[in-house]
Amino acid sequence: MGKGDQKTRIGKISMGSYGISRPRLSGKLTVPKKVVEPTVES
């Protein structure tokens, strides 16, 4: 197993492809912002 193997992570990095062994991390690492509700001053 090495750079030519399509089922390994190293092989997918060398070919530039994605799959189960090399998932894309698009948008999963973002932290949701806290919603600050405006206070009503009377």
Rank of each mutant, 00 (worst) to 15 (best):
K28M: 04
S42H: 15
Y18M: 02
K34T: 10
K28R: 07
R22L: 06
S26H: 11
K34C: 07
L25P: 06
K12Y: 04
T30S: 12
R24Y: 00
S42K: 10
G2T: 05
Y18T: 05
Q6M: 10
R22A: 00
K34V: 08
I10M: 15
D5L: 02
S21V: 05
S42L: 13
K7Q: 08
G11F: 03
D5N: 14
S21K: 01
V36G: 07
T8V: 05
M15H: 14
I20V: 14
K28H: 09
Y18F: 01
G16M: 03
R24W: 01
K12M: 15
G4R: 12
G4M: 15
G19N: 04
P23D: 00
Q6I: 05
Y18A: 02
S17I: 14
L25F: 04
P38L: 03
K33V: 07
I13V: 14
G19Q: 00
S42G: 11
T39R: 10
S42E: 14
L25Q: 05
T8S: 02
G27R: 06
G27P: 15
I13E: 10
R9H: 08
I20H: 01
G19I: 04
K28W: 07
G16W: 01
D5R: 02
M1I: 12
G19T: 00
K7Y: 03
S21R: 03
M1P: 12
M15I: 11
P23N: 03
S14H: 11
G19E: 03
I13M: 12
K12I: 14
R24Q: 10
G16H: 02
K7F: 04
V40H: 07
